[in-house]
Design a protein around this nucleic acid. Structure first.
Length: 236
DNA sequence: GTTGAGCGTT
């Protein structure tokens, strides 16, 4: 008999193991390694401390430091932190290979992005600071554009990850850009719903009807339109 | 039954 948990279609992520020793990062021609070197990591659960994160990235010798932001009064993790690497290339590699992959001993995926650089204390901004502004603008643009062509996916099983959801939709709709599961910040458990973002509006509309009732893992999904995100700030 | 998450200290 087949295992009820056969999730072969949501197989292990491709980039998870870095078995080969990597060349020393001491290449003097580091001009091509220029650029941002800090990553932001979010979606952390309260129990995920520095040791846990170091354990996640032991294969990266370019990881210089790691910090989790904590509430100064309570000492509780604020759910995000920063990873600093010795060069841009290493950081970019970690971002690409880890982002969206499943976190060890947790149900959720790594949520990584470029960090906004140090909040420039009381100095005049360097010319390099433009880079940071550009990065920020890119990020905001990405957020803004993420509101279009999304669908709501409910009735998900608890074990469905963003990776699985993405896979199920991407198989039918090539324009799928992203899929995300909403997790409870404190328990880390799935809230059993998520969002899938399409690049093509026609595929979005098709999916609204075609994927309603389709199975992901053990349950039929319920598809719905996404209401406008609460726009706290009017476009005035 | 269900409608979202985001950037630090020296």
């Amino acid at each position: 008999m087949a295992s009820p948990y056969s999730l072969s279609w949501a197989d292990a992520p491709p980039y998870h193991y870095h078995g080969r020793p990597q060349p020393a990062p001491d290449s003097p021609a580091s001009s091509d390694g220029a650029g941002p070197r800090s990553l932001w990591i979010g979606g952390l659960l309260p129990w995920m401390d520095e040791d846990y994160l170091y354990g996640c990235f032991t294969t990266s010798r370019e990881l210089l430091s790691l910090v989790i932001k904590r509430n100064k009064q309570t000492g509780q993790s604020e759910g995000f932190g920063f990873l600093k690497f010795s060069d841009h290339t290493a950081a970019a590699h970690i971002l690409k290979s880890y982002n969206g992959q499943k976190m060890p001993n947790a149900v959720q995926d790594f949520k990584l992005n470029w960090a906004t650089q140090q909040p420039a204390p009381k100095k005049l901004p360097d010319p390099d600071f433009k880079l940071d502004l550009a990065t920020q603008q890119e990020r905001h643009a990405a957020v803004d554009s993420s509101s279009d062509h999304s669908i709501f996916v409910g009735d998900l099983a608890y074990n469905v990850t963003g990776y699985m959801l993405h896979h199920v939709f991407k198989a039918r709709y090539p324009s799928v850009k992203s899929a995300k599961i909403i997790f409870d910040k404190f328990t880390g458990l799935s809230k059993c719903y998520g969002f899938v973002q399409f690049g093509d509006v026609d595929e979005q509309i098709q999916a609204l009807t075609e994927m309603n009732g389709a199975y992901c893992s053990t349950r039929p999904m319920r598809i719905g339109p996404v209401p406008k995100k609460k726009s706290a700030y009017a476009t005035v």
